[in-house]
Nucleic acid binder design. Structure first.
Lengths: 192, 192
DNA sequence: CTCTTGTCGAACACCAGTGTACGAGTTACG
DNA sequence: CGTAACTCGTACACTGGTGTTCGACAAGAG
């Protein structure tokens, strides 16, 4: 209801800035507004005309990234054996994490503390739901809090992204490694 | 052989700067040289007299941190059942990770890429040795590369540090959570 | 005691980024 | 078409950091 009053050419600029920003920040989390404007084929002034500050731009890009990620994740089949569902979820999440790694860094130091986590609420809830179901069905461990398991998953995936960036593993290997690691970590401890 | 020619008073300054830097960077990874000098009770000029650049100062602090960490880690008993040894190693490493978390961040963006890892060589080798032994004794899995397991351990510990900093878990809970998670993740997958 | 080494503060040059102001030119939209 | 919306480049003010220079002064070493 706010939007109808934007001229077509302004909308094009905004879109161009958003995609250019996504691309630049994905390469270098510290990319400057000049860099982004140039990449968008737009004057720096125009950029500030649409986004009051660098922070708000980063926020917008991040929001968009989460939204498109959510769309992908929403199509993952989470029914059936929770272990298989988790495998599928990892397979999809993983690509997103790898892709948006640098953008996340940008967000972390341009946005107020807590904002990143706030925007992650939806994807996190999805994981949590799956884990809870797995716990209820006795295929995931219940001796650790669900939130901790979520955090472990998060960190292992981001760790894998670092390893790739450093050239120590390849993109192909990552998903199976992550899956093998997390399935083991999440299994109920066998009583000895 | 280089050192004997430093005046007592200069040595005091250097020490003060080093400890102040450790403290400041531990609070805020982006702490400025002014801040550090002030905290050390020393002029900014004096600081630059001993450390040619901010980067070299950070490097020196980091080197020192690793060294004292290594000292602690060197006292951990790594004999006996590798699982127990790993538990003890985690217990010790964990405190170090938590303590030096912010310093690590400082190092990561002040030092040339690869330098951080280079300085981590010793502690990483220690972990690797233990894991290799565990693999040889069939208590740790061999279907994933050792280097991956090391990375997982690293990331889980750092993840725990974030959780603490965000106030979602307490320092007490961390070690048992980490241990429980890693022991499960590292166990050989049971043939089904 | 003397001379070298170190310390101090203030000032300076420099850089890179952010955000703003201005005025002229262009483009969509009705 | 005409007007309002948009864009552009240049230039500016401001901020906050880094690293250097200077000259005066203190303090340790022999």
């Amino acid at each position: 209801m706010t939007v109808t009053t934007r001229r077509a050419d302004a909308q094009r600029s905004i879109a161009a800035i958003l995609t250019a920003a996504a691309e630049c920040l994905g390469r270098d989390p510290a990319a400057s507004t000049s860099e982004i404007a140039k990449a968008a084929g737009v004057g720096r002034v125009t950029l500030y005309g649409h986004f009051p500050s660098r922070a708000e731009l980063v926020d917008a890009v991040f929001v968009q990234a989460i939204a498109t990620g959510e769309e992908t994740l929403g199509q993952v089949d989470l029914t059936g054996d929770p272990r298989d569902a988790l495998t599928r979820l990892i397979e999809s999440s993983w690509h997103l994490v790898d892709q948006y790694r640098a953008l996340l860094l940008a967000a972390q130091d341009a946005l107020p503390p807590g904002r990143v986590r706030e925007l992650h609420a939806d994807p996190m809830a999805r994981v949590e739901r799956l884990l809870e179901r797995g716990r209820a069905e006795n295929v995931f461990r219940t001796d650790l809090p669900t939130s901790w398991l979520v955090s472990v998953m998060h960190n292992v995936m981001h760790g894998a992204a670092s390893e790739i960036q450093a050239g120590r593993i390849t993109s192909d290997q990552a998903a199976p490694y992550i899956t093998a690691t997390l399935l083991a970590a999440f299994a109920p401890p066998k009583a000895e």
